[in-house]
Design a binder for these strands. Structure first.
Lengths: 206, 206
DNA sequence: GTGTATCAACCGACCGTTCGGTAGGTAGCC
DNA sequence: GGCTACCTACCGAACGGTCGGTTGATACAC
């Protein structure tokens, strides 16, 4: 009771707790009073740190994908062959999307986007778009080296991100099912997906 | 003005209008009073047809996928080669998921599933699961004929449905963006996806 | 063909609750 | 004294859902 938190990261603490609650019960299903009490403070105190519920949510969205993006950046900059890079990226994306809290937020952003289009827009600008460019740069590198055939970037993202995002969505939707992991065996799906994608990139298109 | 509706499908009319509103503004973002007034009746009258908001929503979910499932069934039963069947199925799935209202509901179901797990459960039981079996039967047919290699059914659904569902989700999330169609060119993505999937099935795995 | 019972469909008004957000005050710290 | 972080107490609005009553069509008895 004597020395309280270093007071530095109370804000971060709130964001992390709020993220967890939003993921559990949705945006509309999570009153900020619940967030506040989970943080051990009152609603009014929470409003001392954030000007509104939407701003709090936006902060939750922003919070995580910084590190997620860094991870991909690191891989893009590393000096292995493009194929290994791509496999690493897929690994990270599955981890981020299915395991961490950031990735699981897509359906939440979709939910909120009706009322606050800005959240979705900044999500696209600050996360999706940069990530798309990073991945594309890896593939381009492979094309230059003659390992990959040219591919429509949008098709690539469609095939690459599609299954991952849907997997996260499904696991959230059907989280109540008791045989969730047998329905959606992450590891198997990941390796199968990666294999197929790489093969397809080697055969290539346009 | 003389003879009103055949009174038969007032319920269906409500379901269709409600579906549109739910898609526009989400579950929590759509008060049932809004549904009622869009139907030209009052809230109390709406409660004459449905016992609660969740039941109304469940009816909206159920309403559409009956016909969507039939469509796939028709294809599965038709007498063409498995590859053509599969291409037809992909065609229909893109249409249903991206164009019609049914497919666009996945994020909504995810939103509601927190509060009403039953909705997601019946969605899985009555739509996802049967559809999975139908598609698997087409692939099995191809395997018997030696056209396709064996494949983990879950991986197949992962690769097949993933991009489609995510496409629908993205188009909903980023619906505010003005260059939506250039970001997500449905036809191109569809043909590219189909091509890749078929090729992968021919090379096959396990 | 007139009274009457029934029933689905509908309405206006209202209730209880929840929730986002605010006002105003307090305790400790530089 | 001014600033940060927090509190108790409260407000106004929105929403899901209910209540009691009305209307109009169908059915049937006499």
């Amino acid at each position: 009771m004597s020395q309280e938190k270093p007071t530095v990261d109370r804000r971060s603490e709130i964001i992390e707790i709020a993220t967890g609650l939003f993921l559990q019960t949705g945006f509309a299903g999570t009153p900020i009073s619940a967030v506040a009490s989970a943080c051990g403070i009152t609603k009014a105190s929470l409003y001392h740190h954030f000007t509104g519920k939407d701003q709090l949510f936006a902060a939750c969205v922003t919070h995580g994908y910084g590190t997620a993006l860094e991870e991909v950046q690191k891989i893009a900059r590393s000096d292995t062959d493009p194929e290994t890079k791509l496999r690493h990226v897929i690994d990270v994306l599955y981890d981020v999307t299915v395991t961490s809290s950031v990735g699981k937020m897509s359906p939440l952003i979709a939910e909120v986007s009706h009322a606050f289009p800005g959240v979705a827009q900044s999500f696209h600008q600050d996360y999706i778009s940069p990530q798309e460019k990073l991945i594309q740069s890896i593939v381009d590198e492979g094309v230059e080296q003659g390992v990959f055939k040219t591919q429509d970037p949008r098709l690539l993202m469609h095939i690459l991100m599609g299954p991952i995002v849907t997997l996260s969505l499904s696991r959230q939707m059907f989280g109540a099912l008791e045989d969730l992991d047998s329905h959606f065996p992450i590891e198997d799906l990941k390796t199968g997906h990666a294999e197929m994608l790489i093969q397809s990139l080697k055969r290539g298109g346009t």
